[in-house]
């Protein structure tokens, strides 16, 4: 089973319980900052009269996982995109590449690592909901099976079409994400990125990278061949000199 979250902006009252619980669960230092940072992995932001959570979307085919040269970021079987700080070399390609702008860096540390929501892997393993979903007093953040949450999201829109924008954010963005969102105001007005491609982004580089072995074999053979042909004249001359 692949788990996920459903965040329903219309139910959120902006209490910040998710932020506080996240800090506690992940031993993150205070204070709670107004934007997500390497030390504050989720916040509630008020935009256009509505509240919206900022957190990792946990892509089904994550860009950050594909770009990390040392595999420090991985999509776990349970659904979260987890981070192994012990592997990270600090190239920050994940921060640069993430279409949602999620991973953050410890710019103030001499030995820095990346910080991002990891979907509470320890809690999920223990059969618990994520910290944010556990404490949410309004049920705005729901934890559960990603596909079931997708159906729930659709059902909520169908039940109250006047209340919701007819779009489940995360169903298709970047090829689909484990975190889904519902909203009463258009998503771009919540500050959500709406120009994210619908296909998984890792494909864009894999189209090129997958050709590298072919290129090495073919171009290698070609270059050796080229050398062989262009140096034939030298060999002929050498042979003639030897005869003389």
């Amino acid at each position: 089973m692949s788990v996920g979250l459903l965040f329903d902006s219309t139910k959120c009252i902006g209490c910040g319980g998710c932020t506080a619980a996240c800090k506690e669960q992940n031993n993150l230092p205070l204070p709670i900052e107004p934007v997500t940072t390497a030390y504050t992995w989720t916040i509630v932001e008020k935009r256009d009269g509505a509240f919206v959570r900022r957190l990792c979307m946990h892509c089904l085919e994550p860009t950050c996982v594909s770009v990390c040269p040392v595999g420090a970021l991985q999509k776990s079987a349970s659904g979260g995109v987890v981070y192994d700080a012990g592997k990270c070399i600090g190239c920050r390609y994940c921060i640069m590449a993430c279409p949602f702008g999620v991973p953050k860096y410890q710019w103030d540390r001499a030995i820095p690592v990346v910080g991002k929501c990891v979907l509470c892997p320890d809690r999920v393993k223990a059969g618990l909901a994520t910290a944010c979903a556990t404490v949410c007093p309004t049920g705005a953040t729901l934890f559960g099976d990603r596909d079931a949450l997708a159906r729930e999201a659709r059902a909520r829109i169908d039940a109250e079409p006047a209340k919701y924008v007819d779009h489940v954010y995360g169903l298709e963005e970047a090829g689909g994400t484990s975190v889904l969102m519902l909203s009463g105001v258009p998503f771009e007005r919540l500050g959500m990125k709406t120009d994210v491609p619908r296909q998984p982004l890792p494909l864009l580089t894999w189209q090129i990278l997958s050709k590298v072995p072919d290129f090495v074999i073919l171009a290698g053979a070609f270059l050796f061949g080229l050398h062989w042909i262009t140096h034939r004249r030298d060999e002929v001359r050498q042979a003639e000199e030897d005869e003389r």
Binding site: C15, G16, G17, A20, K23
Partner: peptide, 9 residues
């Protein structure tokens, strides 16, 4: 009215 007034500290 925010949880963050008392949580996590």
């Amino acid at each position: 009215g925010e949880c963050t007034g008392c949580h996590p500290e």
